[in-house]
Amino acid sequence: MRLLFALPGFHRYERGAEVALLSVASELARTGDDVTVIGSGDAGPDDPYRFLHAGSIRRENFEKFPFIPPFRSETVYEEATFAAALARKYRPADFDAVLTCSYPFTNMVLRRPMAGGPKPLNIFVTQNGEWPAVSNDAEYRFFSCDGLVCTNPDYYENNKDRWNCTTIPNGISLDRFQPGPGNREKFGFPQDRKIVLMASALIATKRVMDGMRAVAPLGDTHFVVAGDGPLRDEVKALAAEILPGRFTQLTVSPNEMPELYQSADVFLHMSLLESFGNVFPEAMACGLPIVGHDTPRLRWIVGNEEFLTDTEDSVQIGQALTDALAAADNPARQVSSRVADFSWTRIAEQYRGFIGGLPKDRPSD
């Protein structure tokens, strides 16, 4: 198949959605599909796919802009600048299917009318949530797709009667994410304390500061946040107040993530609900006990053996962290057998099967 993946952050940012979709694109390209990627970064020397540059303005430049519909966040401002460049590079007739997780502007550009010939199948992936697919309010009422990839079973149940749907989780590279000795010295972590790790953007929904408050009473622990975002100043100020000498904030490349997990004792994630957190199978594959908010969706990912709790209850989250730290010291602890379900090879096969099975004759938008 001739496939196009389009997202503003491709080859420029290394966030969850970018890492996930590029991993799918790479695996499909390596196993026989003709894959093109359009993003605002630059082509790499070892890309298994064809890369096209379409520029955008970084979202950080929009953090102080007014947020009004449809420009509800700095992310949408960034996407709008990318969509203008994408429209100049995108040739619908060159592709059998196009994929994105960005709405509204990228999705709309990829669905633009074309004269003559069949339009490519438009695949939307719920990496950043299902709102475009389920909501009929404001700009969401203009959403459309030929296939919806739901990254969790909740999204599938919500959308199966309206769209051509499938459930496909994100994946991990099993040859990279596995237990190991780590390298605390490299990251500047203390050798004599337990390390509680969050890998998270510094935005309100990730509840990083709630995580800091949960870890603070555990006096023999050091709290690490790998990520950046608009709340960086607030996070730094709170750390100075409640975690003096016990806090590290850093950013690392995807290549360093396995070593980062291996350098920690427990993985903590405080979001109340995620479409799919790549960090969960990554941490699980590296052997870290996981503390997170107890939802059916998260149990679908990590199973019933991790330390899921009501993270809005200070007593329960404190106990879960204590139990997880104790489990980290257990030499008999094994990596969950569930991690095999998240190999990128399996995930790419599911994408190929879903796209190949979609009806080619369909009503136009």
Rank of each mutant, 00 (worst) to 15 (best):
T221I: 02
N136Q: 14
G219W: 08
D365F: 15
D210Y: 08
V302K: 03
G229Q: 13
Q319N: 07
C101K: 06
P217I: 13
V19H: 11
L260S: 00
A214I: 02
F307V: 01
V208C: 05
L272F: 03
T309Q: 05
F280L: 10
L121Y: 09
M1H: 02
R362L: 03
P359K: 12
G287T: 00
G41H: 12
G39C: 02
L197W: 08
D161I: 00
A138K: 08
N278S: 02
Y90L: 04
G55I: 10
A43Y: 09
G227N: 08
F124R: 00
N255G: 08
G32M: 05
P363R: 12
M212V: 07
T166P: 00
P118T: 04
A240N: 10
K236L: 12
E185R: 12
F189E: 11
G41W: 15
L22W: 06
R207S: 09
A84W: 11
V315P: 03
C101S: 15
Q319Y: 06
T248K: 13
P181H: 11
Q316R: 07
I38K: 02
D192W: 15
P70H: 04
L7S: 06
G357A: 09
L325I: 01
M209E: 15
Q350I: 03
Q319T: 03
G357L: 11
N278C: 01
G245I: 07
V339Y: 11
L121W: 06
Y77L: 13
A20Y: 15
C145M: 08
Y261M: 06
P120G: 04
E282Y: 06
A324D: 01
R2H: 05
P8D: 03
K186N: 05
G147Q: 02
F143T: 00
L325W: 14
P254S: 06
I355M: 07
P331Y: 12
H222T: 05
A324V: 03
C286N: 05
L4C: 00
P132I: 12
P179R: 04
I195Y: 14
P331L: 07
A283W: 06
F143S: 00
T251L: 13
E79Q: 02
